[in-house]
Every structure is written in structure tokens, then in C-alpha cells.
Design a protein around this nucleic acid. Structure first.
Length: 488
RNA sequence: GGCGAGUUCGUCUAGCGGUCUAGGACGCUGGCCUCUCACGCCGGUAACAAGGGUUCGAGUCCCUUACUCGCUACCA
């Protein structure tokens, strides 16, 4: 197979009808990985042949999300290559030129059947319970001249492929092996629609060939269309690309992934606070693995390990719990400069300006927050109390931490803190330890009440570090401010 | 209904005829660390869909059944 040996050219060919679904994102990703792993080309083609479903906003989102993921195309909208245009709606002349070849060779024919007649045929087939349903090939043998006369007279028609009545059509799928269909179950599919636009089947075959596609990596919902595509390649006398049908991604409980079952689009996950590298890593592992025990990987590592034959044929369920864990892993891998930026922006949105704070202090805070974050937002969200006194206190924690005796403890801690100089975490810790001696208690008895007073919440970074970062005066002030809410 | 694809712990998976009394990860869970929560570390839980073959030997090959998913549009 020559295509197998040619420099790799692969594509992602979405139709701009809705948001970029994670399944689509993974298809794009595998194409991208394969291109990068082989030194090939990854191009983006927009399949906008369905004028009813076309959606301008979807197209913009699609490209934005692809870029956010880092799946930059080598050719396509915005970076024209030599085989454009990359919008199918701009390639109508090409399809009309190509369809003539099939008409001439007798591999395609005009069909004048109306929607109504087609529906009737279908109904009859269902009622009679025949095994093979589909178009009854009513117009298959209308002579070309007669058909063209009718067209000239203003009659509307579609153009269909003349599928062989007998025999089998087979192809090799790179991850599933040999697949074959009896020709008799294949329909005389429509190639050119009544509105003059090509169908997906026709446009994608013509484009994949003309745009030099060597491998088609697409969702496995296309498997049963593939024999039809193979027949088209044959009719044209073109060599078919290498087929590679990817398994679907299912929702956690099974079934299709959808908005109703939670996040489903790339945009959803971005808004939730996931890193693009997390999504890439997670999606890649849903149906592919490098063989060993490696799981948390960078894009570069995945690319260099990527091969088609390690793609699984099995459908995979999307487990958001694992995604969350993985996001934590990738957050911890991020450098401080990036996280610092996330923190600054997030805080700015809350009206907290940290531009005056020393860089070293901000970095320390990042260091404290990083191991605790699962989502990007967790960083600015928990950073708030480093800069601003709590305006409210966690209800459940109040009941637990500010019961009888807590005010006495708070007061004692506050007095102890006044004497700490300099106010460093080591000195703070020492002061707390001294206090446990004095009061003959444990650290646990001291910490809860003042943590809540200073941060407003019951859990978080180490108290000594927190105190040092907040600063002596402010710590003392915050404790004093909370004391009235505590029990004597 | 027809056709096609798929089937290893709850989930993602390793496994490509003997090294599998089935390994890793997430989850759940016991413990350690510890001022809390995380992180980290140590341990536990749990799977070859079923039945027939082939073979000295099957999670691995073949067949059947069951179940799941997809297609069955002038949508992609």
C-alpha cells in the first residue's frame, strides 16, 4: 500500500454544527500526534456541506478550542497550504468537476425520486419486513441523455453511486483488521444533493484524495460507511487511504457523553479549571497507551511514544474522577510563573490587587497552594485569605472550633504571637509549642480555633506558614476580630 | 429487523499460547506522616461475559450464545 509509505498527511475534518466534543477532540489529537510522531502534516478541513446545520459561532469555538488544546494545524483556515480551499463550501466547483467523471464512467446516475416516494418505499420495506432496506434503485437505469434532458427541462435530481449488486467490498482497518461487507447491503448512496452540495461521503473522499490524505483517523461511527467510500475510490481509480477507526468515548454510566451528564465539550472543561495538558493526556489514554505503566505524560512524551497499533478498539468510559486526579498532577508539574499568573488574574477578578506584594511572598503562597489544587481556580480561591481578612466563617467549623473555652485559647495564642519576633514560621511553631507546654495541651487543641479566625475555613496550608505570610499584625487583628464569635 | 464493531477489577488499562495463584492507575478503603486539609509513602478491595472447541498447555487462537455500541438520511 503506497499510502502507507508516503509522508504522512492527516486531517481533522469537523463540521461546524456545535461545540467541540471531547470525542472529536480526541480524534483531532490522535491525528495531531500521528502527524507529529512521523514528521507528517496535520491539516484542518471544515466540512460545512450541510447548510441547514451550519453555525458560525460553532466554527469559531472549534478553532479556539483546538488552539487552546495546542493542536495547531499545519494547514487549514488561517494558514493556507497548497491544497486549499479548506472549507468544503468553497470547493463546490471541484466536486462538480469530479462527479462528471463518475457520470461519464457510468458509476453514478441521476435520481429523480422525491422525498415522498422515498418515504413510501421505506414504509413498505418496514411493513413487509425485508432484510435489506434502502433505496430501491428506481432511477438506476434511466439513460444519461434522458436524465439530462429532464434536468435541462428544470427537473431536480440528486446523483447517486451505482453500487455493484453482488460481490463484497473489503478493507483493512489499522486497528481492527479485515472488515468486509456484502455489496447487496450497501445502498446506492447520494453523492450530490438536490441543492447541489455534495454529501459527506462524496466530499470527504474527493477531498481526502485531492488533499493528499494518507491516513484517515476518524470515529468508528464511520465504519459502516467505509465500504461505500472504498467503492468510490475504486470508481475513481484512486488509491484509498489507510483506515483507522477510533473507538467512541462513553459517559461514566455508559451511553453517550452529553451536556446533561456533565461536561462534554472542551470548553466546559476549560471553564471548570482543567489544564489543556490534562485533557490531552487523559483523552490520549482513553483508547491508547504507550505500553508500560506511564500515565502522567507531557505532550512531547506522548508524541514520541505514539503509534497507531497501540490504539484500542474498545469503547471507553469517561471517568471524571481520574481526570481530576490527573489535573492535580499536571498542576503540580506547572512552573510557578504560570501559576502565579493564574493566581494574580483570579484574585484581580475578586477585586484583590496583589501587584504590590513582593514576588517572593507570592511564590511562597503558590508553593503552599499547589499541592492542594485540583482545579486551576482552587489557587486564587484559596489564596484570597492570604490577602484579605475573612468576611465570614465556615458554619460547620464554627460549631466545632469555637465552642466552650475557645475564646480563652484564641486570646492566649494572640498574646503568644505578639512576642514572636521575627514572625517566621519556625518561630511561630516554637511559640505554639511553648504554649502547649504552658497550657499542658496538644497542638491540635490550639490550632483549629485560630485557623478559622484567620482564614475563615477549617482546612488549608500549614498554620505557621499561613501566619508568616499573613503577617504578625494582621494575624493578631484577625484573631481579635473573631473572638467575639467564640464561647468563653 | 439487517449489517458491522466491541467484551480483563466499579472505571482507564497491561497482557500479543507457558514467566498470570492476571500487573499498573483512578476510585473506594486501612495505616504512616501531621496543627487541619491536601501532597507523599506503605497496605487492602476487586476482573479474564458464558459455553463449546484447537492445543501437552488459553486471558491470549477458532466457533456459538449473551450483552453493549454504531450504521441502516438528499446529517455529519
Amino acid at each position: 500500500m503506497a499510502n502507507e509509505n508516503r509522508p504522512v498527511r492527516v486531517r481533522f475534518a469537523p463540521s461546524p454544527t456545535g461545540y467541540l466534543h471531547v470525542g472529536g477532540a480526541r480524534t483531532a489529537l490522535y491525528n495531531y500526534f500521528f502527524a507529529k510522531a512521523t514528521g507528517g502534516t496535520f491539516y484542518l478541513r471544515i466540512e460545512d456541506t450541510d447548510r441547514k446545520r451550519y453555525n458560525e459561532a460553532a466554527l469559531k469555538d472549534l478553532m479556539r478550542d483546538l488552539k487552546w488544546l495546542g493542536l495547531q494545524w499545519d494547514e487549514g483556515p488561517g494558514c493556507e497550504g497548497s491544497v486549499g480551499p479548506y472549507f468544503q463550501s468553497e470547493r463546490l466547483d471541484i466536486y462538480h468537476e469530479q462527479i462528471k467523471k463518475l457520470l461519464d464512467s457510468g458509476d453514478a446516475y441521476y435520481c429523480f425520486c422525491t422525498e415522498e416516494r422515498l418515504q413510501e418505499v421505506r414504509k413498505e420495506q418496514e411493513q413487509s419486513g425485508v432484510a435489506v432496506t434502502g433505496y430501491d434503485r428506481h432511477c438506476r437505469d434511466i439513460p444519461r441523455e434522458e436524465a439530462e434532458k429532464r434536468i435541462a427541462a428544470g427537473e431536480k435530481a440528486v446523483i447517486r453511486l451505482k453500487v455493484p449488486l453482488t460481490g463484497v467490498t473489503a478493507f483493512e482497518d489499522k486497528i481492527r483488521g479485515h472488515i468486509e461487507y456484502k455489496n447487496e447491503v450497501l445502498d446506492d448512496l447520494v453523492l450530490i444533493k438536490r441543492d447541489g452540495f455534495p454529501t459527506y461521503h462524496f466530499a470527504s473522499v474527493v477531498d481526502d484524495h485531492l488533499m493528499g490524505t494518507t491516513h484517515v483517523l476518524r470515529g468508528d461511527e464511520w465504519i459502516s460507511s467505509t465500504p461505500k467510500h472504498v467503492l468510490l475510490y475504486k470508481a475513481f481509480g484512486w488509491e484509498a487511504p489507510v483506515w483507522c477507526h477510533l473507538p467512541v468515548i462513553l459517559a461514566a454510566g455508559g451511553g453517550k457523553l452529553s451536556k446533561r451528564k456533565g461536561a462534554a465539550s472542551v470548553g466546559d472543561f476549560r471553564d471548570l479549571g482543567y489544564l489543556p495538558e490534562t485533557l490531552l493526556n487523559f483523552l490520549a489514554l482513553l483508547g491508547w497507551n504507550p505500553g508500560g505503566d506511564r500515565e502522567v505524560m507531557s505532550v512531547q512524551e506522548m508524541i514520541s511514544a505514539f503509534t497507531l497499533d497501540r490504539i484500542n478498539p474498545k469503547e471507553a468510559a469517561f471517568d471524571e474522577k481520574k481526570l481530576q486526579w490527573m489535573n492535580g498532577q499536571h498542576i503540580r508539574l506547572k512552573d510557578d510563573a504560570f501559576l502565579l499568573d493564574v493566581m494574580k488574574k483570579g484574585l484581580a477578578e475578586k477585586g484583590i490587587d496583589v501587584s504590590g506584594a513582593p514576588e517572593a511572598r507570592l511564590k511562597e503562597i503558590i508553593g503552599l497552594l499547589k499541592p492542594r489544587a485540583h482545579f486551576l481556580q482552587d489557587i486564587p480561591n484559596t489564596a484570597v485569605y492570604f490577602f484579605r481578612a475573612p468576611t465570614e466563617y465556615e458554619e460547620k467549623a464554627k460549631a466545632k472550633q469555637w465552642g466552650a473555652g475557645s475564646r480563652t485559647i484564641a486570646r492566649a495564642v494572640r498574646e503568644e504571637m505578639m512576642a514572636v519576633e521575627p514572625f517566621t514560621s519556625a518561630n511561630i511553631e516554637a511559640a505554639f509549642n511553648a504554649l502547649t507546654q504552658k497550657r499542658n495541651c496538644k497542638l491540635g487543641d490550639l490550632v483549629g480555633a485560630v485557623r478559622l479566625a484567620v482564614s475563615g475555613v477549617s482546612a488549608g496550608p500549614g498554620l505557621w506558614e499561613l501566619f508568616e505570610s499573613v503577617g504578625k499584625n494582621e494575624v493578631i487583628r484577625r484573631i481579635a476580630a473573631a473572638e467575639p464569635f467564640m464561647q468563653e
